[in-house]
Design a binder for these strands. Structure first.
Lengths: 145, 145
DNA sequence: AGCAATTGGTTTCATTTGATACTATATACC
DNA sequence: GGTATATAGTATCAAATGAAACCAATTGCT
C-alpha cells in the first residue's frame, strides 16, 4: 500500500466542511421545523432586518449565494408576505426588498432562537476563542476569494 | 424598522458556512477539472489511501457523508477501476473497499495537489493559527454532534 | 431452530441546486 | 441618437442530493 501523503482528518478544507455541515444541518432543521424557513430564506430575512432596501444582487454578493437562490428565496418570502419589493426609481430592473410588518415580527422570533442555537453550539468555546475563530475565518475568506 | 437583534456577519454558523463554501468551491473545481473527481469521490479515495479495507458504512460515519452518497461514489470509482471491493467473510452484506493500483497512482497525483491548494489558501494563517483552527473545529464538532 | 428486529448497501423518487438561456433595462462608445 | 455590451432578475433544464422503500444478510430472543 502507498503511504498516505495526506491525513484527511487534518486536511483543513475537509475539517471546515465537516464542521460547517454539522452545524448547518442542526440549525437548518430548527429554522425549518419552527418557522418553515430554508437557510437562504433565513439569510435574506437577516440581511433585510439589518439593511432594509437591499437589492437581490447586493444580497447575493454579500452572502455569496447564487442569484438564482436569492431570487427563489425572495419569491417565496414575498408570497408569504414576509418581504415586499418596492421599485427602484434609478434602475427599473431591480427592486428594493424589505421586511413587511409580519416579516419583522417573524424576525423578532427567529433571531433570538438563532442566537440561542449559536450559544448552545459554540459555548464549547470561550468568548475569546469565538472571536479568534471569526477572525481566522475572515482571513481565510480574504485569501480564498 | 426593528432593531436587528443579530449581526449576520458575526453569526458563527453563517461565517462558518460562508468560508466553507468558498473553500470547497475552489477546491471542488480543481478536483473536477484535473481529475474528474467529485468531492465525495475524492474523500473516499483519501480514506482508502489511509485505511484500505474500510467498508462503506465506516466511511460514512467517519466522514459524515450520507450512505447514499458513499454508495454512489463507490460505484463510480469501481467503474473507473480506481477502487475495488473484496468480500467481507464475516458479513456478506458489506465489502472491503480499497484502492487499485490505478487508484493509488491517482492518489499520488491528487494528494500533493490537494496539499498545495490547502497551502495556498491557508498560508494566510501561521502554522500555529492553523493548528488552533483545527483544534477549535474539533471542539465544535464535539459540541454539535 | 425460528421469527422479529437491525444493519449494510442499493434503488427510487421527490426536492434542491446551479449553469445556461432569456427578458428587460441600463451603460458605453461611436 | 444608435448600436453593442453589460447587468438585474427570472425561467428552464439537467445534475446532485437525500429521504424512504427495499433487499439481503445478520443478530437477538424465545
Amino acid at each position: 500500500m502507498t503511504d498516505p501523503i495526506l491525513r484527511l482528518d487534518e486536511f483543513l478544507p475537509y475539517r471546515l466542511s465537516y464542521t460547517s455541515n454539522l452545524v448547518s444541518g442542526k440549525i437548518a432543521q430548527v429554522y425549518q421545523s419552527l418557522f418553515g424557513l430554508s437557510i437562504p430564506e433565513w439569510r435574506l430575512i437577516a440581511v433585510l432586518a439589518e439593511q432594509p432596501g437591499t437589492t437581490q444582487q447586493a444580497i447575493g454578493s454579500l452572502t455569496g449565494m447564487d442569484k438564482v437562490t436569492v431570487s427563489r428565496a425572495a419569491v417565496s418570502l414575498v408570497e408569504r408576505e414576509l418581504v415586499e419589493k418596492t421599485p427602484n426609481p434609478d434602475d427599473r430592473r431591480s427592486q428594493f426588498l424589505s421586511l413587511t410588518q409580519t416579516g419583522r415580527q417573524l424576525y423578532a422570533e427567529v433571531a433570538p432562537k438563532a442566537k440561542e442555537m449559536e450559544a448552545a453550539i459554540f459555548s464549547a468555546l470561550s468568548p475569546d476563542e469565538q472571536f479568534m475563530l471569526r477572525h481566522l475565518l475572515l482571513r481565510i475568506d480574504a485569501a480564498a476569494s
